[in-house]
């Protein structure tokens, strides 16, 4: 694990990108993009999160195992959200009083 390869300059660049992302997501929220607003907001948040994880948390230089652990966390979160929504989103389909 060679953490010394990231220069301070890249930290400042990432910082500027994060600040820009914050401004962007706030600005976009006030535009009417229809149903597209939420995906855009989440994409910006995801990009910012990846910047933090890869650069500030040094995942870019870390072992495959660390990457795997981080990815597993996201994957299991998606399992929880996905299978739960599989119920919530389809409850009305049958038109029965099951909702």
């Amino acid at each position: 694990m060679s953490e010394h390869t990231i220069s301070t300059k890249s930290y400042y660049l990432v910082f500027l990108a994060l600040m820009a992302g914050t401004a962007l997501t706030t600005w976009v929220a006030f535009l009417d993009l229809g149903w597209f607003n939420t995906p855009v907001a989440l994409s910006i948040a995801w990009t910012k999160a990846m910047l933090v994880v890869l650069y500030f948390m040094h995942v870019r230089q870390s072992t495959k195992l660390t990457k795997l652990v981080a990815a597993a966390g996201v994957f299991w979160l998606l399992l929880l959200l996905g299978l739960t929504m599989g119920d919530i989103a389809t409850r009305g389909w049958l038109g029965s009083p099951g909702k």
Partner: peptide, 17 residues
């Protein structure tokens, strides 16, 4: 982790789920 809904077949869960 993929099977928990089998505890909820009669709980008002969607039949598709």
């Amino acid at each position: 982790f993929l099977v928990w809904g089998h505890h909820m077949f009669v709980s008002g869960q969607s039949v598709y789920a």
